[in-house]
Write a protein that binds this DNA or RNA. Structure first.
Length: 608
DNA sequence: CTTAGGG
DNA sequence: CCCTAAG
């Protein structure tokens, strides 16, 4: 003991006995669901498989079916066609690129094959979705889905996301493209490298990642090389419309709430885990909407239940008070109620729609069903953002909202003339998808996978959209629907759509994501308070420390305090030259060491 | 929920 | 800061 005059009455064995843990009870253990990330794809895979099965009953295809992609694509509505072309050719020049879906569904005759999702990725530029067959016997009927999704992206990141592999997360992925499919690709995209590689190696690596979707402003980096050239080739195929210009319209920059901390970009660090969403946790950026939402939580007081729905726990609630950048969540099946700001923020409701074009060429009667999916429809996308927010922040907010939806938990729904096609076992013929006269009414929709999702709690508080009931909200997306036929999709009632209607990071719609709290360095006064409290209470009563010294600082949890103490001890032990960040007064560090030594000794004495 | 520690 | 096993 170096000294005893620490400015308090001396170290003592804790006076206040702690309640036994058993008396405090235990909550349920959170359960993680590792494979959640791919759940969204599972349905799609099954859909693809069913579509393919359906094709088995179809008449052999006409080779012409696959010859002219451009004949297939955009052959639906005028609006879609024109827009599609203009997008393909012009969008990059205006600073956007087409985000594309590809789904190849080779159908077979007389061969029962299992189709597996080959790729599903959404990088900043590409949302690629391919379903291939492991079989080399393709007699007939390729079903080609070509979807394009317009997204504003930064072209510099073309292919950069290639290294992030969805396959790596699940054995369910990583199937083979074989010659037939490759031929299809070649025929459409004219990319030799892709074809040859697909034939030779048979494996199409996953490309893209969620994190890249968010962090758009970084330069391409070495990641690209790690997954071989195949991805690049594939991307080259997909992005055969070059985007040569520099786009920064979706640049995402982070600024911490805390005045003490400003982060502008993070170009260097790459998440060690390349699941598509893991990087989000590490590197995605907090947006103003989320901040406002969080603050609204705080301000609402008793009106809203705490995030974790436990009114008895004040400390866990604190965590929810903070602002979270997106991060990967290991699928806690919690559905914290989302809320919206009742304050003076003006809200902007954005109905994000998409349209799907489908066509059955007459010459392929009963054979191939070729669909061009201009874009998946996202049922609802409502953004809440202060009226004072900048356009840039709006873009970022929308981007993040979209990312939140795309990141996980999606399910592809089929809409035929506005009605959901629920029976996955029906063939396309039986369903009517293959019938020419109905081609205009086929739609695909992305929905949350968790159909059991209950309507968001914040539904009760949608005053931020004056005069709008949730039903009204649904209508808002209709005017933005590109194609008249697809408006029917908007009207399709869906619980999932309800859930998506509150994208302001209502994690219901995307339980994969939580937001990492922003970093808030401890101030000197906080350190002082912490040291003082620990001197008094010891190093094993962090809840008491919290109550004693940080009760009013809702963003400091007892875990935070414990962590801070840990770092303080570490800081005190290393040389001043090694210390980083805001320097802590040596006097405090000395007290830290002294208190730490004292309470460690006390602990040892009690234990041994 | 809290603690305690590793990441 | 996050995550989580233990208590």
């Amino acid at each position: 003991m170096r000294r005893l005059d620490y400015g308090f009455t001396g170290y003592q064995v804790p006076v206040v006995p702690r309640a036994s843990r058993s008396s405090r009870g235990r909550g349920q253990i959170r359960k993680k669901c590792e494979d959640n990330q791919i759940r969204g794809f599972g349905i799609l895979s099954s859909v693809a498989g069913n579509l393919s099965q359906g094709s088995e009953s179809l008449v052999p295809t006409n080779a012409a079916c696959v010859q002219d992609l451009h004949h297939i694509v955009y052959a639906n509505s005028n609006r879609e066609r024109d827009e599609g072309r203009s997008l393909k050719q012009d969008s990059c020049q205006r600073g956007t690129c087409d985000e594309k879906f590809f789904a190849f569904l080779p159908g077979l005759q007389g061969h029962h094959k299992s189709y597996k999702l080959n790729e599903f990725c959404h990088g900043q530029n590409n949302l690629i979705l391919e379903v291939g067959s492991a079989s080399g016997a393709y007699d007939q009927s390729e079903m080609i889905f070509f979807a394009e999704k317009l997204a504003t992206v930064n072209s510099r990141n073309n292919c950069v996301s290639s290294s992030n592999s969805v396959i790596g997360d699940s054995p369910c992925f990583g199937e083979f493209f074989e010659d037939k499919v490759g031929g299809v690709l070649e025929g459409k995209l004219g990319d030799k490298s892709y074809t040859s590689i697909s034939e030779k190696d048979g494996i199409i690596p996953i490309t893209g990642s969620s994190e890249d979707l968010i962090e758009l402003d970084r330069e391409p980096h070495a990641l690209v090389g790690s997954e071989s050239d195949v991805k690049l080739s594939l991307l080259d195929c997909i992005n055969h419309v070059p985007c040569p210009k520099h786009y920064d319209n979706v640049k995402v920059i982070t600024r911490d709430d805390d005045e003490n901390s400003v982060r502008c970009s993070q170009h260097s660090t790459i998440s060690k885990s390349y699941t598509p969403t893991a990087g989000i946790r590490e590197r995605t950026k907090k947006l103003s909407a989320s901040r406002n939402w969080r603050e609204a939580q705080k301000l609402k007081g008793g009106q809203m239940k705490p995030m974790y729905c436990n009114g008895t726990n004040r400390h866990m609630d604190e965590r929810s008070q903070n602002i979270y950048p997106f991060k990967k969540r290991k699928f806690f099946c919690q559905n914290p109620p989302c809320t919206s700001d009742g304050g003076d923020n003006r809200s902007i409701a954005i109905g994000a729609s998409s349209s799907i074009a489908g066509q059955v060429p007459p010459e392929s009667k009963g054979c191939n069903v070729k669909l061009s999916i201009k874009s998946f429809k996202v049922p609802e996308l409502f953004i809440e953002i202060p009226a004072t927010a900048t356009v840039g922040s709006l873009k970022r907010t929308v981007m993040e909202a979209v990312t939140a939806i795309l990141g996980d938990g999606l399910h592809v729904g089929i809409l035929l003339q506005g009605k959901k096609v629920k029976d996955d076992n029906k063939t396309l013929l039986q369903t009517g998808i293959s019938q020419d006269r109905k081609r205009h009414s086929l739609g695909f929709i992305l929905e949350p996978r968790h159909a059991q999702i209950t309507p968001p709690a914040c539904t009760e508080d949608q005053s931020w959209l004056p005069g709008c009931t949730p039903q009204d909200l649904s209508r808002h997306s209709a005017p933005l629907t590109l194609q008249p036929e697809t408006q029917a999709m908007v009207a399709v009632p869906s619980i999932g759509m309800e859930a998506l209607a509150v994208v302001p990071f209502c994690r219901k719609s995307n339980p994969e994501f939580v937001r990492r709290r922003i970093r808030r360095p401890f101030s000197a006064s906080e350190v002082e308070a912490l040291v003082q409290a620990v001197e008094k209470l010891g190093t094993g009563r962090w809840r008491d420390v919290k109550l004693c010294a940080f009760d009013s600082e809702k963003h400091r949890t007892y875990v935070d305090l414990k962590d801070k103490w840990k770092t303080l001890v570490h800081t005190a032990r290393i040389s001043p030259q090694q210390r980083r960040g805001e320097p802590v007064p040596q006097e405090l560090l000395d007290r830290v060491l002294a208190a730490h030594a004292y309470w460690s000794a006390a602990s040892d004495k009690a234990t041994g």
